Deep mutational scan, measured.
Amino acid sequence: ETWTVFRRYSRFREMHKTLKLKYAELAALEFPPKKLFGNKDERVIAERRSHLEKYLRDFFS
Rank of each mutant, 00 (worst) to 15 (best):
E1R: 14
E1V: 01
E1L: 01
E1W: 04
E1G: 02
E1C: 07
E1N: 08
E1A: 01
E1M: 05
T2Y: 05
T2L: 14
T2S: 03
T2W: 08
T2E: 07
T2M: 03
W3E: 09
W3F: 12
W3R: 06
W3A: 02
T4G: 12
T4Q: 12
T4V: 05
T4E: 14
V5P: 04
V5A: 13
V5Q: 09
V5W: 12
F6M: 04
F6G: 07
F6Y: 01
F6V: 08
F6P: 06
F6D: 03
F6L: 06
F6R: 02
R7T: 10
R7D: 03
R7M: 09
R7C: 12
R8P: 09
R8V: 14
R8N: 05
R8E: 03
R8M: 14
R8Q: 11
R8Y: 11
R8C: 14
Y9C: 12
Y9G: 14
Y9E: 00
Y9H: 08
Y9S: 11
Y9P: 12
S10A: 09
S10W: 10
S10F: 12
S10V: 07
S10H: 00
R11E: 03
R11T: 09
R11G: 10
R11Y: 07
R11C: 13
F12S: 02
F12K: 00
F12H: 01
F12Q: 01
F12W: 10
R13N: 06
R13S: 08
R13D: 15
R13V: 04
E14W: 01
E14A: 05
E14H: 12
E14L: 04
E14C: 05
E14Y: 01
E14N: 02
E14G: 07
E14D: 07
M15V: 14
M15L: 14
M15R: 00
M15S: 00
M15G: 01
M15K: 02
H16T: 13
H16W: 15
H16G: 14
H16I: 15
H16F: 09
H16P: 07
H16K: 11
K17C: 03
K17Q: 03
K17R: 07
T18S: 08
T18N: 03
T18H: 03
T18C: 08
T18K: 09
L19N: 02
L19Y: 00
L19R: 00
L19S: 00
K20N: 00
K20Q: 04
K20G: 02
K20L: 02
K20C: 02
K20W: 01
L21Y: 03
L21Q: 13
L21M: 13
L21C: 08
L21T: 09
L21H: 12
L21I: 04
K22A: 07
K22P: 00
K22Y: 04
K22N: 01
K22S: 00
K22M: 08
Y23M: 11
Y23H: 08
Y23K: 01
Y23R: 01
A24T: 08
A24S: 06
A24W: 02
A24Q: 06
E25P: 08
E25A: 05
E25K: 08
E25H: 01
E25Y: 03
L26E: 01
L26N: 01
L26S: 01
L26M: 05
A27Q: 13
A27W: 04
A27G: 05
A27C: 12
A27F: 07
A27Y: 00
A27T: 12
A27R: 14
A27E: 01
A27K: 14
A28P: 04
A28V: 00
A28K: 09
A28T: 10
A28E: 02
A28G: 08
A28D: 00
L29V: 10
L29M: 15
L29C: 06
L29S: 03
E30N: 11
E30Q: 11
E30F: 15
E30K: 10
F31W: 13
F31M: 01
F31D: 00
F31S: 01
F31H: 06
F31R: 01
F31P: 04
P32T: 11
P32L: 15
P32I: 13
P32D: 09
P32H: 13
P32C: 13
P32F: 15
P32V: 14
P32R: 13
P33V: 13
P33E: 00
P33N: 00
P33I: 14
P33R: 08
P33W: 15
K34A: 15
K35V: 05
K35R: 11
K35T: 02
L36M: 02
L36H: 01
L36T: 03
L36Y: 03
L36W: 14
F37P: 02
F37M: 04
F37N: 00
F37A: 03
F37K: 07
F37S: 03
F37E: 04
G38L: 03
G38Q: 09
G38K: 05
G38D: 01
G38P: 05
G38W: 08
N39M: 09
N39T: 05
N39E: 04
N39S: 10
N39L: 11
N39G: 11
N39F: 06
N39H: 11
K40Q: 07
D41T: 08
D41C: 12
D41M: 14
D41R: 07
D41F: 13
D41V: 13
E42N: 15
E42H: 03
E42M: 08
E42A: 10
E42K: 14
E42S: 13
E42V: 10
R43H: 12
R43Q: 10
R43K: 10
R43G: 14
R43F: 06
R43Y: 03
V44D: 14
V44N: 09
V44P: 15
V44E: 08
I45G: 14
I45E: 12
I45N: 11
I45A: 13
I45C: 12
A46H: 02
A46L: 05
A46R: 12
A46K: 13
A46G: 14
E47R: 12
E47H: 12
E47C: 11
E47K: 10
E47Y: 06
E47F: 12
E47M: 09
R48S: 10
R48A: 11
R48I: 12
R48M: 13
R48L: 11
R48Y: 06
R48E: 04
R48P: 12
R48N: 10
R48F: 12
R49D: 13
R49P: 06
R49G: 10
R49K: 15
R49S: 08
R49W: 09
S50A: 07
S50D: 08
S50H: 09
S50K: 08
S50E: 01
H51P: 07
H51V: 13
H51T: 14
H51A: 11
H51Y: 06
L52D: 01
L52G: 08
L52K: 07
L52N: 02
L52W: 14
L52V: 11
L52H: 08
E53Y: 15
E53W: 15
E53R: 15
E53Q: 12
E53P: 14
E53D: 08
K54P: 00
K54M: 05
K54V: 05
K54G: 07
K54S: 07
Y55E: 00
Y55H: 08
Y55M: 13
Y55Q: 08
Y55T: 10
Y55W: 14
Y55P: 07
Y55K: 15
Y55I: 07
Y55V: 09
Y55F: 13
Y55C: 14
L56C: 11
L56D: 05
L56F: 02
L56M: 07
L56K: 02
L56N: 03
L56Q: 13
L56A: 09
R57T: 05
R57S: 04
R57V: 04
R57H: 02
D58N: 08
D58S: 07
D58K: 14
D58T: 11
D58A: 12
D58P: 12
D58I: 10
D58V: 09
D58G: 11
F59R: 03
F59E: 02
F59A: 02
F59L: 07
F59G: 02
F59I: 10
F60A: 01
F60N: 03
F60L: 09
F60W: 13
F60R: 02
F60G: 02
F60V: 07
F60Q: 00
S61M: 09
S61T: 05
S61C: 04
S61R: 13
